[in-house]
């Protein structure tokens, strides 16, 4: 039952695809080929990303991440988050599990908003494509405005999520504590 529930959304999508195949076969064929293309990309990218996150979980101590990216990391923390985000490292969905791991390890919401935002909007290879097709002034203005916006959004998210933390974080925080105790024992 719980397995069915977990996969409810993909199953619904399957029906949408089936409906589309009947009513709009052209769109269905295009959708299927796009989905297949993305599936191949994900199958190639997601396993190594998750293993990297596993290594990070096991090897990098919490106080290090807290020092580099935590609430007290200041300008340096924001700089690290920005630099990490702009590296050419693939699509945004790769960044979500990374962000989750980093938050569990003590990174601040402010820095993680900048990280995600830079990943999505300020990636170096993407900026090069943008410059080519929309011009250098468009790209530069959008870059600076987006960076300013990210700082503001990060500030608001830090304030709001500190005051009203998500229940999921408290639970995973406890799980993290348990994992860490286990890691101590295996040493």
């Amino acid at each position: 039952m719980s397995t069915v529930k977990k996969f409810a959304a993909p199953i619904v999508l399957l029906f949408v695809f089936a409906g589309l195949a009947i009513w709009l076969p052209d769109a269905a064929a295009r959708s299927a080929s796009v989905t297949w293309g993305y599936f191949k990309e994900m199958a190639l990218i997601m396993p190594p990303v998750f293993i990297l996150m596993g290594l990070l979980e096991v090897w990098v101590p919490k106080d290090k991440i807290q020092k580099w990216l935590g609430s007290g990391s200041g300008l340096k923390g924001a700089g690290i988050a920005l630099a990490l985000g702009t590296l050419p490292t693939g699509p945004l969905y790769v960044a979500f599990p990374m962000t989750a791991t980093l938050i569990r390890k003590g990174a601040s919401f402010f820095n993680m908003t900048i990280f995600l935002g830079a990943w999505a909007a300020l990636k170096i290879p993407q900026l090069m494509v943008e410059t080519k097709f929309l011009g250098i002034s468009f790209t530069l203005v959008r870059f600076s405005l987006t960076l300013m916006a990210l700082l503001l959004i990060g500030f608001v998210m830090e304030k709001v999520l500190r005051r009203y933390p998500d229940k999921a974080w408290i639970e995973s925080g406890e799980k993290q504590a348990v994992l860490e105790r286990l890691a101590q024992n295996t040493k």
């Binding site: 959304a9 993909p10 999508l13 399957l14 769109a27 299927a32 998750f50 969905y93 599990p97």
Partner: peptide, 22 residues
């Protein structure tokens, strides 16, 4: 973690395909 994320990964995949196909 990968098993836990699999359903949402598949969902995103399907929705991305649908929106781009349409």
């Amino acid at each position: 973690a990968l098993l836990k994320s699999a359903p949402s990964l598949l969902t995103v995949l399907g929705i991305v395909g649908l929106t781009l196909g349409i």
